[in-house]
Design a binder for these strands. Structure first.
Lengths: 128, 128
DNA sequence: CGTCTATCTTGATAGACATCGAATCAGTGG
DNA sequence: CCACTGATTCGATGTCTATCAAGATAGACG
């Protein structure tokens, strides 16, 4: 199979990419927007993944080695790897291999798009 | 049993209530914060619930009758009721019975707390 | 009180998911 | 080339969840 699976599969970034901002409270989201948002929210629907994302996103230098992440949990390597894959496929993080180690990095646009979706409506109808 | 189960069980609102703002990207969240955030994110991890919340939160007058919500989906009543219960227990919406009908209303603080958690760090270290 | 409508609860079932152990892949260094 | 370490994938398993049909509750209305 491919040799570089450690790459985002295009997910959350699309929520606020080329389309409307999709502000949840401004107008009803379309079925497609809801599906995309739910996909990303579901990725965050696990305490381990929330902590993983927080550890990655708040880390100095912007990237963290998997070995450092694994050490923060009472979970086996494969389980951490699984959770990182879910975050990757949701478009929230990317992983890059450097030598023996793999470094993860958050995707700010994806987090911004989510925050945007939850934001209060500008004035209550002024957004139209 | 009780007669007024249609009430929030205290969930998301606590994320940003009396404690720290818990900004995901500012510093690593605690295990408790991660658990609470994941609880709410999980509630949003379903396309039906995202649409339900959006329909409720963006509705003129701030409230929507269940009958109106049910009509927007190809799902049975019990299923819609189940999803509304999940949103309620996550602290994202409240339901109030008025006569034969039940009206749902979003809880702005809960949505704001979530958006806050995803917000970019103020300056990148200035928050310390 | 009986009936009708709207909503919720219960019970059952099929599918999804978190977790682990074992095996595999990628790179380093003898 | 072989052994070693770090990370991922594969396969299995127990638990959770989305959905529905059937039944129960709450209130309106005769």
């Amino acid at each position: 199979m491919s040799n570089q699976r450690v790459v985002a599969a295009g997910g959350a970034a699309e929520v606020g990419a080329g389309c409307e901002p999709a502000v949840l409270r401004e107008q009803p989201v379309t079925e497609a927007q809801a599906a995309e948002l739910a996909r990303v929210f579901k990725a965050l629907g696990d305490p381990v993944r929330v902590r993983l994302l927080s550890l990655i996103a708040s880390h100095d230098g912007g990237e963290v080695c998997v070995c450092e992440l694994s050490g923060a949990f009472d979970l086996t390597g494969p389980t951490i790897s699984h959770h990182l894959k879910v975050l990757r496929e949701a478009g929230l993080v990317t992983g890059e291999r450097r030598g023996t180690w793999v470094y993860y990095r958050a995707i700010p646009e994806a987090l911004a798009a989510l925050a945007e979706a939850l934001r209060p409506a500008t004035v209550a109808g002024a957004g139209a």
